[in-house]
Structure formats: C-alpha cells, structure tokens
Design a binder for these strands. Sequence first.
DNA 1: TGTTTTTTTTGACAAATGGCAAAAACTATT
DNA 2: AATAGTTTTTGCCATTTGTCAAAAAAAACA
Lengths: 189, 189
Amino acid sequence: MKELINYILKYSVLHELQIELIKSKAQMKVIKKGECFLEAGKVAKQLGFVLEGILRVCWYNDKGEDITRAFITENHFALNVSSFTNSTPSEVSFEAISDCKLLVFSKNSLIELEEAIACWKEIMSKVTSTALTNKLRISNNMLIQDGKTRYLEFLKIYPGLANRIPLSTLASYLGIKQSSLSRIRKNIK
Amino acid sequence: MKELINYILKYSVLHELQIELIKSKAQMKVIKKGECFLEAGKVAKQLGFVLEGILRVCWYNDKGEDITRAFITENHFALNVSSFTNSTPSEVSFEAISDCKLLVFSKNSLIELEEAIACWKEIMSKVTSTALTNKLRISNNMLIQDGKTRYLEFLKIYPGLANRIPLSTLASYLGIKQSSLSRIRKNIK
DNA sequence: TGTTTTTTTTGACAAATGGCAAAAACTATT
DNA sequence: AATAGTTTTTGCCATTTGTCAAAAAAAACA
C-alpha cells in the first residue's frame, strides 16, 4: 500500500487525511497467472496498481499472432485510459504473466477521490501523460534500431525483467521472431 | 481559428463567451520551412496549433542521424507535454517541413483559460492522452511489421502526407533506410 | 534555357531476420 | 527417476534490409 502512496506523492503533496482516504478506497485483487485484469472487447471498470507480479498488455494481430505491447511491473498503474474514461471496449487485454496482487479502484471510488482531493484529477493526468510519453519514446527509439540493439536496450530499461517473462513474449514485444531473439541472445554471450 | 474551436469542441461543450476568450488568447505565428517551433535543449514556452504546413518532431540519435519521430499536420496541437508542463529542456525539436502558420498560446494565457473555463484542464488532459495513446498504438503496431507493411500503413493513416515530405524524413520515421524505402515504393507500383 | 544543387533511384554485395521443423533443454507431475 | 508437456535452441535456406557509391531524376536558381 505504501508503494502506491509513494508513487502518487511523486506527483503531488497530500495531507495525511487525503492519504487515508485514498487507502480506504483501494481494494485488493489477486489474479492468477494467465488470467486477465482486463479482457479485450470489454470495458475497463477499474484502475489497477500492481503490487506483485507482472501484467502484459496484449492482443491478436491480423495474422492471429499473440502480440505483447507492454509490460506492467510492480509499482506501476494498470489502466487502459481510453477504455476507462470513455467506457469503450478495450482492444487489448491485460493478462497476468505471473501470479499478481493488485490494488484496484472502481470508477465510483475515483469520482469520490476527485471530489475530496482537489488536485486528484491533475495527479492522474500527470501520471498518465508521463507514462504514455515514456512508453512512446521507448517505442519510437526501438523502431529505428535492429533486433540486437532493441534487446540490449530492453535489458537496460527493464533490468531483471527479461528473466521473468517467456522468450516468445519478449520477442513479440521487441518486434522480432522468437528464433531471431534466441540467436541474438546467443550472440551476445 | 474555427478549426481550433472545432477541435476543442470534440472534447467538451463550451459557451460562446468561453470560445471568444480562447480566441482572444491565441496569437498567430509564422514559421518558415526549416525553422523550429521548438528547439531541442530549450524549454517549451508555448502550446501551438498548426493551421497550415507540417511540423516534424525530430532529434539526433547516437550515430548523429537525424531521426523524425512524428509529424504534426494541419489542425493538430504541437506540444511537448513534459517540457511545457515541467519546464524541462526538450530533447526533441519541432521543425517546419514546409512554411507553417500556427496559433500559439503562452503559458500565462493558458493559466488564464484554466481559471476562466472550469473544464479547460480536463479538455487539455483528454487531448494529450488521446493523442499520446493514438501515437503509441501506431508506433507499437509499426514495430512488429516489416518495412513494406509500415509504409502501406503510413499511407493509410496519413493520406496524402507521404507526397509532402522528403523520402529521407519518411524513411527515418518508419525506421528503415532511405534506399530500402525507395525500393519498397518501387515494388508496390 | 542552362547550370547547380538536392533528392531519389539503382547496382552489387553483406548482414540481419524470417519460415519451418526438428532437436535439445527445461518444467511440472506422477 | 520416468513421463509428458512446454519452452528454447538450432539447422537450412529464403527474404528483407543495410551499406556504400554512383547514376538518374527532380528541384532550385541564375
């Protein structure tokens, strides 16, 4: 729980009472490996914050391949912004790569937080725009690099993560085939 | 000017007076081809809205190559969110590919709009998160495709744009070399 | 129109990645 | 320890993309 508060405090100063209010609205949710926090086609009803485990944001491309678009690791928010705010069906799933423990907030809880904490909307706005900007920079930089460089970059940006996810998942995230990634990895050693 | 208002009205309802206020805060700015709306290393001081022409978001990678990360066309906002909101130096430039005409808002003007229009912050928040989400989806999808597919995708997403920008610029955006793009294009015809 | 400059295309070859399938290595379970 | 299931590595060859440099085409300018 304190991880969530620390995360939020990076974006704004809060009083003790406000912190308690936030804590009171959070619910614990456990998701087993392979299950989904959010399923493609459904509307996102919750804002999540990962305490343990790893989620992956994924979908099926037109060839039917299972593509991983992002990883959400400990102490990060899990949120499909457009699905949640516009109540539109999500095009991606948020699937647990490993057993996960999350804090979740319902839409109603968040509305109450908005009403009680003047800067709450601004905090959320900053959180999402910062996260999106970072992901966009990473994705754009990957685009202009070859497979080997992408992999090395990934190791640098997400230390330790490569060992916790299947090779096929990482390969699809990097935009290369699993066999190529296997060869790249072999080459580096 | 009405293009800007139409853009904003997609995200919220506004009264006539509020619209007039927004109009009154906008300043016209002309940028010649090759000049910058924002230079890398400097802090973004303005929010821009492109009325005519095309900007490109660009930077130099570690090999000294000039990389285009995004295009900003007519009737879209030109804004480096993090540089503008946190007053941090921008890592990218916003350079005019062709002669441009922009509407610009100073930070002070925006603060006045925030104070006068209750939902202004929310509008801006939605505008940026929507734009970032879209770009991220596009960039992620590009990552998993080969050069030919990326190019065809680009033609679909940005109709007409390919004819208005140099091949070298488009190639760097697509993450392939100019010679490859030239061959891909030849192949398609 | 002719000249200069810039942009795009092309050739020849090297390097990287993909496709497919089998082998090997690793896990989980009994 | 043996079995079955899953994940990763490897071989072989096709395709794509990169590199470098020169030629061709297009644009800018006098």
